[in-house]
Design a protein around this nucleic acid. Structure first.
Lengths: 193, 193
DNA sequence: AAAGATTGAAGCCTCAATCTTC
DNA sequence: GAAGATTGAGGCTTCAATCTTT
């Protein structure tokens, strides 16, 4: 199991999340206590996963944010190309965040900016051979050190994913009634009809 | 149910998390696919919760980071005082983050810096009357708009908390064998023995 | 030397404003 | 006017270096 360096340096001898719930309960906020603990637990898990991922990616001179962009370009796009808007949609970040990430990836020769063939407003990002090689190597380590090292059974992870999906759908993370074909459309595939 | 403004502006018509899992599976990374989806789901949920909380806190001129400091000072500390190191431990952030947060809270007269009575190296943070009033009001709205608005049953949230606890303990978020008395000690309570 | 706190540099994120193109 | 992208400002976070005190 992989431990991020950051986590070990600030260890505590009790669970602050559980302690906070006791406070909520004792204050008479019983109906919100479990929700507070849920949110706080998600925040903590996020922090730990992110630190683990960034620890792994550091040796590839990547961050998780930039890795995600690279991974989408490598495997979920036609010909390794995607417009900056599409990247922002998939990663659920603002246009400014995408611009910044592409700037850095381009500076490292992992990605190239291309003009959109039919719309001069749009910019395409294309992954380079170096980018492909980098993301493949990074993924191998990420798989081994982070994704395969989660201390839950498959059933438990499936449960967790499902519970978080309910939260995501409710918050409008994506429109739930979306069909698979729309995924293909947004990648530029022609619809056969 | 509460929707953060940010979420609605970048909606997608398919679940990018599920799409990524398909890629992993098709690439032959089956053993890592579910872990990847787990991590990505946590990242997304975190993003959504954080946006919801910050939306609520904006009207109090607070951010979630600063709110958390205030909440610990208000309810989990002796006399509303805690050393900056203790705050960092509870929030699991670096000393630099605590310094920055206290700087801003102090500038808004929500917190005061005090000298530690017996150790000149240490700085105490004390919540002010204005800080107490602010955190109480903010908590009311946070409870209603975020913590009580999670679309899961109590059993489901309990499940979610437990699954995330397993992850947190494994990653060393806190030392699991900690006893309740240690919590009191670290708040300055005398141990009766 | 070790612990507590601070500073500065850098990365990621958001928002608001801007500029170009549709 | 609306859409795509960029810029600048500001907030959170980390790390590394520094300074004081133990």
């Amino acid at each position: 199991v992989y431990h991020a360096a950051v986590a070990t340096s600030r260890s505590l001898s009790f669970d602050p999340v559980a302690a906070a719930r006791e406070v909520w309960t004792s204050k008479g906020w019983g109906s919100a206590a479990i929700g507070m603990q849920t949110v706080t637990s998600v925040m903590r898990a996020h922090q730990l996963f992110l630190a683990q991922a960034n620890d792994v990616l550091r040796s590839f001179k990547l961050t998780f944010a930039r890795y995600e962009v690279l991974a989408w370009l490598a495997w979920n796009a036609d010909c390794g190309q995607l417009s900056l808007t599409q990247i922002g949609e998939r990663l659920q970040v603002t246009p400014a965040t995408v611009t910044s990430a592409i700037d850095r990836l381009e500076a490292d020769d992992l990605v190239r900016r291309l003009q959109h063939p039919s719309d001069a407003r749009s910019t395409l990002a294309e992954i380079t051979p170096k980018g492909l090689k980098t993301v493949a190597a990074a993924t191998d380590v990420l798989n081994e050190k982070v994704y395969e090292a989660i201390p839950l059974s498959e059933d438990q992870m499936e449960q967790l994913i499902q519970l978080l999906l309910t939260i995501r759908v409710d918050a409008g993370d994506f429109s739930a009634q979306g069909r698979a074909e729309e995924w293909h459309e947004s990648n530029g595939h022609a619809k056969h009809d």
